[in-house]
């Protein structure tokens, strides 16, 4: 069975690009434009990986991370952001983020990170 990946970013192009590239590798991908919509979906369906933007209006990436870790601890969270500030990265790491990428994200590296998170080497 293929693994499921959720992408959350308030800009459509980010989700579209991530979806297109990850589907090529056989992942099942759903994209969301806000933290709110993503958390609502998470309450219906289990995802193996969540890739989320950090800075978003309303529920931001850190809040997504905390919620996921609290309610769906097996789901891996990867953070991406245009503001690659070290302090935020540290805060996220403390909260068990699996990986952290500044945008633009190299697709190859994102894929590697996801494979590693899923124990696919």
């Amino acid at each position: 069975m293929s693994h499921s990946v959720m992408i959350i970013d308030d800009e459509k192009i980010v989700g579209d690009m991530a979806k297109l590239s990850l589907e090529q590798d056989g992942y099942e991908v759903e994209t969301f434009l806000s933290g709110e919509a993503a958390l609502a979906r998470l309450s219906e369906k289990k995802f193996d990986v969540v890739v989320t933007d950090l800075k978003m209006k309303g529920i931001d990436g850190l809040e997504v991370l905390r919620t996921v870790k609290r309610f769906y601890p097996e789901t891996v969270v990867i953070m991406i952001t245009a503001f690659a500030h070290l302090d935020v990265a540290i805060e996220a790491l403390r909260d068990n983020v699996h990986d952290f990428f500044p945008k633009p994200v190299k697709i190859k590296e994102l894929k590697q990170s996801i494979r590693k998170a899923l124990g696919e080497g």
Binding site: E11, V14, K103
Partner: peptide, 13 residues
């Protein structure tokens, strides 16, 4: 390079 299709970028970038 960033717009080559090998990167995910946003408008801010």
């Amino acid at each position: 390079e960033k717009l080559s299709g090998n990167y995910i970028f946003d408008t801010k970038y």
